[in-house]
Amino acid sequence: MATRVRSFWRTPPGKIAWLAICLGSIVVLLGAWWYLTRPGGGISPLFLPPPDEVLDAFVRLLSRPYLGSTLGQHIAASLEVVMTGWLAAGLVGLPLGIAMGWWRKARWVAFPIFQVLRPVPPLAWIPLAIVWLGIGESARVFVVFIAAIVPWVMNSMQAVYSIDALLVSAALTLGANDRQILTRVVCRTALPTLVAGARISLGNAWTTLVAAELLAATSGLGYIALNASRTLEIGILLVAMAIIGVLGALFSVIMQLVTRIVAPWSRANAEGA
């Protein structure tokens, strides 16, 4: 330890240093953006407006309706679809994945189906969804459902399947029956991995929703982005993209928080967020 100084990149930072580094990187990015887009800065504001113009666009979106709805209503529309599709997928995918991880025969029956489904990009379902359900909310919920159910099932299956068999042996010798082993040992031990699956699923659902709104929507963040690009309102386009990014990141953080609450014993929680 004393003989070699650890490099800056490998030293774990304190809370304040961590915050300073995070803020620093954002400030540098904004600075570079502002510098390049200032008058005579090399990038035309038609391609990339300066930061203050994007902020203006944001304030405008907040105060006045855009494309028939306020920004809040657009966000709510997106959230409603993503939550409906994701939760419905979880209602089916979580128990199905657990069953596939626990019972070999369930795996034999259902796994091939999901192996075929997995490589089909969720967006490839949009044309079919439009034919079946029209350009409406249900088409988008359907596409989100498809995008979310594959990771729900696959990760839940993997979480249960990869439980240490020795834990099951230990439970058996202590007198637990199959049901007690499944609920008290397997599902509880798998909980952090199950939540991780839910998180991946939510991430998938979110990106797919935004893409679906580009094609089949009358409101929502993706719909704003599409229209703004048609009318060359790059500021509004960037605001929509930023909100999509921030909300996506927020979901991820919330799901990590959920792990910490439902599985306070999980080792993964001990390491960074």
């Binding site: 834990l167 042996s169 230990a170 058996l172 202590l174 007198g175 637990a176 509880r188 014993w265």
Partner: peptide, 28 residues
């Protein structure tokens, strides 16, 4: 079949990670 008549201590401990010490002991 296996049951509490013959309990086992394994080399790899095999404690239930989601349960506290007291809960692990109370399992059986």
């Amino acid at each position: 079949p296996a049951g509490p008549q013959r309990t086992v201590v394994f080399q790899r401990f095999a404690l239930f990670p989601s349960e506290t010490v007291a809960q692990n002991i109370a399992f059986g």
